[in-house]
Nucleic acid binder design. Sequence first.
DNA 1: TTTATTATTTTTGTATACAATAATTTTCTA
DNA 2: TAGAAAATTATTGTATACAAAAATAATAAA
Lengths: 251, 251
Amino acid sequence: MSRTAPTAALTESNSDSRKTSQNDHIYEEMLDAILEQRLAPGTKLSEDTLGEIFGVSRTVIRTVLQRLSHERIVRIQPNRGAFVSEPSPEEAREVLQARRLIEEGIIRAAVRKQSPADIKDLKCAIAEERLSLETGDHEAWVRLSGDFHLKLAEIAGNQTLSAFLRELVSRTSLIIVQYQKGTLSPCSCDEHAEIIKAIAAQDEDRAIALMNAHLQACEDQLNLRENDTKADLYSIFSKPVKTGGKSRGAM
Amino acid sequence: MSRTAPTAALTESNSDSRKTSQNDHIYEEMLDAILEQRLAPGTKLSEDTLGEIFGVSRTVIRTVLQRLSHERIVRIQPNRGAFVSEPSPEEAREVLQARRLIEEGIIRAAVRKQSPADIKDLKCAIAEERLSLETGDHEAWVRLSGDFHLKLAEIAGNQTLSAFLRELVSRTSLIIVQYQKGTLSPCSCDEHAEIIKAIAAQDEDRAIALMNAHLQACEDQLNLRENDTKADLYSIFSKPVKTGGKSRGAM
DNA sequence: TTTATTATTTTTGTATACAATAATTTTCTA
DNA sequence: TAGAAAATTATTGTATACAAAAATAATAAA
């Protein structure tokens, strides 16, 4: 419901939020559904079905799907339709690497620009996060733990970088859904808290090191081996499979 | 025509490039027109008109405009239509700052991953760039000087970062169109050449310093004072204007 | 029974029609 | 004549219709 900064396109005119925000509303709903795992990676997103669900025509659904596609949350295959993205292991590493880079820059700026109110706000956000973890509200936790990073970006004060990070955070959620092995992350709240402490203390180097470790820990909890069905099948059934008759014993 | 990596969405199936690439073709045409200054910032992009020009319905024009809008090259105002973006001075600074950050990361990766062929390729690109400058082909130069940075990103091997940089490079072109003061940049080719030299010599720190200087030089050549009509008008007519009669001599 | 081919159905891509909003022109009044 | 109000025109937002492609089902042949 209260996701951070819906689109940054129309901060003005809060009164006419009926027609215009129809797009945004459906976008929010679908993004939430994907990030909260109600729509699994690979799920087909039929235009007709979605149109019926939200009570609109395919036209507006199409707009939303295109937007999600540009943010790499959805993948559109020409003449085939839209599907929830299934980020590859390589893409997962890229996204985490991009985050390390961008969030390092964000921390540098945040250390300089921070105000006491900002720190208070961040600590408050972490408290909320911890609460959601204690009450077992997994959906809220996914959102809140991402919001922490976005709040930090806002303090840094570069909207262009914020927009990039927003996309990366969404994609990270999708990556975690797909590759998280076993248990949930123990408690990233503590790591977030440590980062804030370092920022408040103006200790830039430590804050950056903590953030890098935090993101690296996230990546380390993923199972990013290349077991994408095909290669996997061949390795499992290591004896030669019939491929049409030719070149049987070549490999 | 030969822009680098149109969309990265469909690298497969080069044969059916007729229906599918209609979108892409119009997108390319419009992007080129904007970056080559044939469409000035602020220009209204009427759906009907564009549809007639490209011989398609508004439907497909709309898709293209939405894509350009997501890349911040075009600004869509609800119920008003699409316009070529007029990036604010603040946005200009943000874009350049984001580039310094991202390209630093790209250089780090490129220094590690470079092959001799990559360096040869880059040098070749710089030669092309220099040629376009000598022959006075300004349109080609705008494209080629951006392509240099994108090639570097490709060498770094992170497609996610490449996509971000691609957007930033386009936006930089738009920013230069709007804020470049006086003469063209003397010759960024030389700066590009120096950067390559440092990368080839594995001198990471020097390559980064050069890139930062290069981007800073770009920013310094811009006239980024907040002279956005309104404030400017008031400062130009510094004598009190009739505001209704009240509080005349207060300031 | 299995496979290949054909026919049917479903779904996407595009054009068009209509409704809602904004921009423009015209008309009316002071 | 200047300014305001109303009517007209143009443009965007959305729904729908039709064409093209893909997916599915059904039929026929081995």
